[in-house]
């Protein structure tokens, strides 16, 4: 991290745990840095999944952000105090806000 970047850290809460991330990170990036492993379960099979493309194509990064489900976490930039949580859907229901 160069000097310009390291001064720019903010705190988010990934599954309730505080984590310092770069202000330009996405919520999906924060989840990865938190070592979250999986970020959602497939609504069809329950399999664990994680962000795949990081550029808005695959929709594999759907997470609950600040309480709102099905946010595309790779497209959401972190904000101070943001709550980033796994999305675990069951019974084939994908929840849209």
């Amino acid at each position: 991290m160069n000097a310009e970047m390291s001064t720019n850290l903010i705190t988010v809460y990934v599954e309730g745990k505080p984590l310092a991330v770069h202000a330009h990170d996405s919520a999906a990036g924060a989840a990865l840095k938190a070592g979250l492993g999986y970020t959602r379960t497939s609504p069809v099979t329950g399999e664990k999944r994680a962000p795949y493309c990081m550029m808005g194509v695959c929709f594999e990064c759907l997470m609950v952000i600040d309480g709102i489900p099905s946010r595309q976490a790779c497209m959401v930039r972190v904000r101070e105090g943001m709550r980033i949580e796994r999305q675990t859907t069951v019974g084939g229901v994908e929840v849209w806000p």
């Binding site: 770069h22 990170d25 795949y52 493309c53 550029m55």
Partner: peptide
């Protein structure tokens, strides 16, 4: 589809945005 598998492009985006 396993967690821990992502595209090279995805990893590069993480590198470019926060030098991950």
């Amino acid at each position: 589809t396993l967690p821990g598998v992502m595209t090279v492009g995805a990893a590069q985006i993480l590198y470019k945005t926060s030098q991950w």
